[in-house]
Write a protein that binds this DNA or RNA. Structure first.
Lengths: 258, 258
DNA sequence: GAGTGGTCTAGACCACATT
DNA sequence: ATGTGGTCTAGACCACTCT
């Protein structure tokens, strides 16, 4: 990476800088390598630190850089492909997944979830209590997602009363798994990590995340709703039959067809 | 929205500001309403303009605000749910979708696409020419996605030679549609809009997008690859059977379960 | 021309991880 | 204690839209 000056251009400096850095990343850096610090880089390119940071932010958003306070900026590995069903043991509680249960409370569902339950569930009221299970999904030793799973009480009628807190979430998941899953539908959208999610994902609040909302249909009605929050910087969500097709490259410049 | 001063807090100012503004948006603003300009807002909350902008950026990322240079900041409508199959006429070229073809060239596929074709296609070489069709997807009168569709030549052997440029893409899509679609798999990841994509989507370069990569399998091999770029601010991708379930709310604060 | 959001600067200080 | 990225400031100017 030379001591290049930025030539005059129509495009914003930070955008040009992004391109220059992206090329340097491809040709001169290995995964895991640490970049010079922001002050040095800014000086090297003759821009203010804020401008350099704007370029780094872009590259981090694209999953090509990883920045850690107190440590430095490193070249990120390719994104992890995480299967998001349908397929395999997708019904929560199925055996060999990588979810780790964190806790469980009973509370009314937040408005967004309540309205989802409302549509697909005769007789459900927004103030009804639901089992709310928080889980964390690990992959390659890192946390990639946190999930809140909302299970209306009468979806799991066989649940024993008065369970100790540690047994409670396991029991809910087991009862859930006994039901027959008919279908599921999902939405994916961009969001930013709330404080609790951010902590579980080892990121700062506001970090970009992919929010996956799943409705599980069983017995002709919505049996459960899951809101999963995936780290957008490190994850690539995979859908469909093929599952684990490995793609080991970054999304690169595409050709215009016009 | 009062002339509130920010009280001292541990969390960063911009994050607290985001929360305050989000609440104001819920309670005091209607969709489409314009906010005060950034300089006024910053003064009102007693912060620098850059800090206020950081908060606005968050809210824009979450699809709650829309900012247009020279115009102002307005309250965004709920995100549009766009079906992303599998289901319905999903094979490109199927009848009643909302894609508009922009152009078509023949060129070698970019590296990322080439490696996808490589895996699922005996005898394919990275330098082989592919038909590259650019399309734009409209929804509710707005552009929501642009796509580059890569079709290896021998996927469409029946294609006549020497077509006029306008007829070319149509012919490719028609030939493609005659093949039997066996399966498809997808990945979704976060990206930032390249210059050409940004223009089609009426956004600035670097705008956050959801990149949907689809492999279409036909005749036991990958018949085509599509890379679609969806506006992350205005779109919610929907998967699965149910298709058009309308959700008319924003993702709101969720309860901790730990 | 007036008003908006977008870019950029040159500083300062803070929170955090490492030594 | 040092060095890193994260936050924040108070300005300036630019690009764009609208009247």
């Amino acid at each position: 990476m030379g001591t290049t000056q930025l030539e005059a251009a129509q495009e914003p400096k930070y955008w040009h800088l992004r391109t220059v850095l992206a090329e340097a990343l491809d040709s001169e850096f290995a995964v895991g390598e640490v970049l010079p610090n922001e002050r040095d880089l800014a000086a090297r390119f003759g821009v203010a630190r804020a401008t350099l940071r704007q370029a780094l932010e872009q590259l981090e958003l694209e999953g090509r850089l990883q920045r850690r306070r107190g440590v430095g900026t490193t070249v990120a590995p390719p994104r992890i492909g995480v299967p998001v069903g349908p397929a395999e043991g997708d019904w929560p509680g199925a055996g060999n997944d990588t979810w780790r249960t964190i806790g469980c409370v009973e509370a009314p569902a937040p408005a967004a979830v309540a309205s989802l339950l409302n549509e697909g569930r005769p007789g459900y009221r927004a103030t009804d209590m639901v089992h709310t299970i928080r889980r964390v999904r690990m992959s390659h030793g890192q946390p990639v997602a946190t999930e809140l799973l909302y299970v209306p009480r009468d979806s799991v009628p066989g649940l024993p009363e008065l369970l100790p807190p540690t047994a409670h979430p396991r029991a809910v998941l087991r009862e859930l798994h006994r039901l027959e899953l008919e279908s599921e539908d999902r939405t994916v959208e961009l969001g930013s990590a709330r404080a609790e999610d951010a902590k579980q994902l080892e990121r700062l609040p506001g970090a970009p995340v992919l929010v996956v909302t799943t409705r599980y249909v069983t017995g002709g009605r919505v049996g459960a709703v899951a809101v999963a929050t995936y780290r957008a910087d490190t994850c690539r969500l995979t859908f469909g039959d093929t599952g684990a097709v490995e793609i080991t490259h970054h999304d690169d410049e595409r050709r215009q067809a016009s």
